[in-house]
Nucleic acid binder design. Structure first.
Lengths: 231, 231
DNA sequence: TCAAAAGTGTTTTACCTACACCCATGA
DNA sequence: TCATGGGTGTAGGTAAAACACTTTTGA
């Protein structure tokens, strides 16, 4: 009868699927790997968990080291644990996702030399990825596509002030289908989680659209009620 | 620049939250531990993953070894990776859940001696559990509560033939609220996934209810459509 | 005949869907 | 003045919610 753990040669890793929205396209953050295995390949930002850090902490640290991004709230969505998924040994990886605001930053500065660079890449234009990262991305994409259909999380991806048309485009890109403009607006405004601003779009060569802000207070309230309602 | 993995002393484990329904109560499967740590405590069926098996395979094997249950389809639902969750070292655990039919079996026969016995325990009557298993159970319960509200998975828990009232009771137990009988029946029958049998309940001292069977073919069809519809 | 659960319909309300035209603006 | 997207309402269908009484059966 054992009283200590066996010393398997196994480690955990974290992989991050970070979604952004820019120029009308849904993008994810990729790094160019600077180390073996899969040196020079594109990959999701991901690395090994240290022995003395929780997986949530590891996710935050790893994303920072490989992309320079800080304070990004991520959620775990799936754990990949097939035997042969890492060429150097047994690595079970916990995948996290986040939806964030690009703020015009296209290229990021990795802190660690494991990543040569970190770049936003359109999901319609993804290269072949290292390890089983394509599979991980797909599952992460499923996750947000599913989530957005019952929770209005798209705001996370937009600039602070946005037009309803921009919001609709984002939904269309994620759900991969056209939506009706009138119905979309009606529904969004009915939620009561948008604050209409006294401001309009600038620099467009057509009628400027009203800008809106996301009302996080009301959103939280609404969402809590939905949850406690059990549906 | 490393080309091999560091040899951390870390392992993964699997924990299983197996739901059953019996005597009008929702139950989960617990084992009485026969080894340190937490010897003699109640715990979820769970153990370490071997180096050469996928986590899905491990889940199946571990459930069998600790409870004698075979061929149970489980889904992964969350991974727990806090540093101090296991007293003997770093163990990240992947939690799986399943909903199964009890078939009158109350106590099961563990194959491994790690479990002294395996028993169904009502979720209203859970003892203090080993490790962070109470937390894992809660998350698993949230999972099925959430899932049942958009997918009629409750059949998995019922005997092959059941009455609508039994089905409704099960929903009420999982959702923890009363449902309207007429609306419930209307909705369930409208799904078209119940086969009405030419048989009635027996041995009751009141009007016998019609028995129904779950129509898995129609369910699969319906569910695929829902999925492909993107909502 | 009583107790206990089976079984059954209608109305109201909310939401989703489909659908087309005028408006404001900058170039 | 034209091109471009901004902005708006209504009608029909479907699903959910509220609500109470009669029927059947065995003890």
């Amino acid at each position: 009868m054992e009283t200590v753990l066996p010393k398997f040669e196994s480690v955990f890793s974290i992989d991050c699927v970070i979604f952004g929205f820019d120029e009308g396209e849904l993008k994810i953050l990729l790094i160019e790997r600077n180390v073996e295995p899969f040196k020079d390949w594109w990959a999701l930002p991901g690395y090994l968990v240290e022995q003395d850090e929780s997986i949530d902490d590891a996710a935050e640290r790893i994303l920072y080291e490989l992309t320079g991004l800080r304070d990004i709230y991520m959620d775990q969505f799936y754990t990949f644990g097939d035997v042969g998924r890492h060429p150097q040994g047994r690595v079970v990886t916990v995948a996290y996702y986040a939806m964030i605001r690009l703020n015009g930053i296209k290229e990021l500065k990795p802190v660690s030399s494991y990543a040569r660079r970190a770049v936003w890449v359109s999901i319609n234009d993804l290269p072949k990825l290292a390890f089983d990262h394509s599979k991980i991305f797909e599952k992460g994409f499923d996750k947000i596509r599913n989530k957005i259909s019952y929770q209005p999380i798209a705001f996370e991806l937009l600039p602070e002030k946005f037009t309803l048309t921009q919001l609709q485009h984002l939904y269309e890109v994620i759900l991969n289908k056209k939506l009706d403009k009138r119905n979309f607006r009606k529904k969004m405004l009915n939620y009561g989680i948008l604050k209409e601003l006294d401001e309009k779009q600038k620099g467009v060569s057509y009628r400027a659209a009203k800008l809106y802000k996301f009302d996080r207070r009301k959103y939280t309230k609404l969402f809590q009620n939905e949850l406690s309602f059990g549906k």
